[in-house]
Design a protein around this nucleic acid. Structure first.
Length: 640
RNA sequence: GGGGCCGUAGUCUAGCAUGGAUAAGGCGCCAGCCUGCGGAGUUGGAUAUCCCCGGUUCGAAUCCGGGCGGUCCCGCCA
């Protein structure tokens, strides 16, 4: 009894069926199961079966027969094996293709019981259990509001985190705060020079527009430039007035930026500030470790005399660099970006012991504190991660590769292998790219996009819920808007550029976030209106209609889909691709199958035993869809 | 000079890792479906030299070679 229960309570129902099929084919064709796996596919149309094999093509070389003959032979043996296998209904052969059909009742039963028993755990598996992962995202300069391109980074990072957690990783979500850059110096200089010209704008927006002005002066007025360069030097000294002014400015800016982040449902565990990297002693430790490696040294002469450089031209990827000596520390001893990044990456893996101190930055709307590094505060022991994912624009493929390569040169081969650059392309406009410097982001800030999305959603919510209060309408509209934006950013493959067009972004019909939320809201209405019946012995084998079956198959695949995306995070020469779009496609498809089912097959008007079975299906859809939306970070709405 | 990514109907995209049956979907266009569990829905239709040229293969949108177009990168910069 217990055994039977645990057998049907299956974390990955689809995989169970697939494995069974592969086992049978392997036996029937006398081949290794792995080989069968290589020649297994999902047929283009369900009428051709649930799983098909093209093993007959493969076998033509060994057996000197044509594929169709081979397939026919295998079918005879498969028929015999399938007779004793409850999961398989039948086998058909179409030319060289061998098509297998699952037992619909078994699939329905196993899938629905698994989903019911697992509830919000459905979709969680343990393939990567025990691994600790760090994600860095989105690392926006604290000098401007997020524009829609920054949101792409943040949303990719957040969804990546959700997926890693679903497959068993322990995840730390970090953000990198560059509080010592030139942009910060420009703003700190400007604020002190001109005093407060603050408007009632959100603070990050205020800084963003201020920055466009100061940048113009910086480029055209040498006196201004000189002043800002001096401020930049002063920022390196934490005791200086400039540093204190900038600290306050950055804190306010980050809090404003975080409001945007929270609107998208994105929360962090920890912020690492550049000042902590600069002043914690991390750099000195890292520098010594780097110099102990053969490829890192200080040239005595040449144009890089006195610098700490890494020699890279022995490596295939870098043999064509303009200059193979990459500077890590300048001749005056200061760090370059690459030098700091290598040291930081060493911290992430715990190659150096954690020199940072920590304090709470703020409490987030999800109830969790986000920590920040400080110069005075509590010691902890972060670092020591198994895998590191840096979500950074694809234009940085080369610098990222450099960092990981230097790690390898230092002798940390494993850590280098486990360093992942999750690359994504920019969101741009038809005419131009977003630039903080030129201010082309104005009109495309993430806040503005979210505002407009919520506004459009609100019109529709008004129409549909005339009796509801303002608070309800605003809240629902915000959730629909946020979900629409997240979906838009996730549905494009990260390595494809997105051209932002208001018409597309605000079109909520078809393949868009609201469609998913809507399908769930409709499902919930059915359950809400259901009368009470004895559901203790549902007969799920009644769910035999094609529309029901397609929905069931999609439901059974959910855990496998998540795993496929996680397994797909394989490191390649120039980056690690993350198919966020695979999950949006799955989710859209699931919603679409439910909508077709909803449209064609009544639940509440079906006769009792069928009604109970269909309600089971609807409930399972609600669970799986909810879990999938959470994975994508799209808010669940009960009514819309 | 070298390298990354992208090129698929009017348009936006999926499929490419691991080659397989009729190249899938959204928007837009045309024609249906509300006395029906919520029409942000659903049914049907028209629209494709899968950038080009070769090669491998029984079979190529997918793999390999060479091009073309777009874009990004190859600083003691930031």
């Amino acid at each position: 009894m217990n055994q039977a229960m645990s057998k049907s309570d299956d974390a990955n129902p689809w995989q169970t069926f697939e494995k069974t099929v592969i086992r049978l084919i392997a036996k029937a064709a006398s081949v290794e199961p792995e080989t069968v796996g290589d020649f297994t596919e999902i047929p283009p149309d369900s009428s051709l079966g649930d799983i098909a094999t093209t093993i007959s093509f493969h076998l033509t070389k060994e057996v000197k027969k044509n594929p169709a003959e081979i397939a026919a032979g295998i079918k005879t043996r498969l028929d015999e094996l399938a007779r004793d296998e409850p999961l398989i209904d039948r086998v058909e052969v179409k030319g060289p293709y061998i098509n297998l059909f699952f037992d619909r009742g078994e699939l329905a039963k196993r899938t629905l019981i698994a989903i019911k028993n697992r509830g919000e755990e459905f979709g969680r598996t343990e393939e990567f259990k025990g691994l600790r992962a760090l994600i860095e995202s989105p690392a926006v300069n604290p000098s401007k509001p997020w524009h829609i391109g920054h949101a792409r980074n943040a949303v990719i990072g957040d969804t990546l985190g959700n997926i890693l957690e679903a497959v068993g990783y322990d995840v730390l979500r970090t953000d990198y705060i560059n509080n010592l850059g030139l942009q910060i110096a420009q703003l700190a200089w400007k604020l002190q020079k001109e005093g407060s010209t603050e408007t009632d704008q959100k603070y990050d927006h205020f800084l963003g527009t201020l920055y466009v002005d100061v940048q113009k002066d910086f480029e055209t007025n040498p006196v201004v430039e000189q002043g800002i360069r001096e401020t930049s030097r002063q920022l390196e000294d934490p005791e200086s007035t400039d540093a204190q002014v900038s600290e306050e400015m950055i804190t306010r800016c980050l809090k404003a930026q975080n409001e945007t982040s929270y609107r998208l449902g994105i929360y962090h565990d920890l912020q690492i500030w550049e000042s902590a990297i600069a002043h914690s002693g991390l750099l000195d430790t890292a520098r010594e470790m780097m110099l102990s490696c053969e490829s890192v040294f200080i040239p005595n002469d040449g144009d890089k005399a006195g610098c700490v450089v890494a020699k890279l031209d022995d490596l295939e990827e870098f043999k064509d660099m303009k200059d193979p000596y990459k500077v890590l520390f300048r001749s005056d001893g200061t760090r370059t970006y690459t030098g700091a990044d290598v040291a930081f990456q060493m911290w992430k893996f715990g190659i150096v012991s954690d020199p940072f101190k920590y304090a709470v930055f703020e409490n987030q709307p999800n109830g969790e504190d986000v920590l920040r590094t400080t110069l005075v505060g509590d010691q902890k022991n972060f670092g020591r991660f198994d895998v590191v994912f840096n979500v950074i624009g694809s234009e940085q493929a080369h610098p990222q590769k450099l960092i990981y390569t230097i790690l390898d040169l230092l002798g940390y081969e494993e850590q280098s292998k486990n360093s992942h650059h999750i690359a994504y392309e920019w969101v741009g406009l038809e005419e131009t790219d977003f630039s903080g410097r030129k201010g082309t982001w104005i009109g495309y800030s993430c806040d503005l996009v979210l505002d407009k999305a919520a506004e459009i959603a609100r019109e529709e919510v008004d129409k549909r819920n005339p009796k509801e209060g303002e608070e309800f309408k605003d809240e629902v509209a915000a959730k629909i808007g946020s979900g629409a934006v997240r979906y838009l950013l996730l549905k494009a493959s990260p390595d494809r550029k997105i051209t932002f067009r208001w018409m597309d972004a605000l079109d909520f019909n078809g393949d868009a976030g609201p469609y998913l939320q809507y399908s769930l809201a409709r499902a919930k209405r059915i359950i809400e209106k259901a009368d009470s019946l004895d559901e203790s012995t549902p007969d799920y084998s009644l769910l035999k209609d094609n529309l029901e079956y397609e929905l069931l198959k999609a439901l059974s695949r959910y855990p496998e889909e998540v795993l496929v995306v996680a397994r797909g995070l394989k490191k390649e020469a120039w980056g690690t691709s993350f198919s966020s779009n695979r999950i949006t496609t799955y989710c859209y498809n699931l919603a679409s199958l439910f909508s077709k089912f909803y449209d064609a097959l009544p639940v509440l008007k079906a006769e009792d035993s069928l009604k109970i079975a269909r309600r089971g299906l609807v409930n399972a859809f609600i669970i799986a869809m909810t879990n999938c939306l959470k994975l994508l970070g799209i808010p669940v709405v009960d009514r819309m």
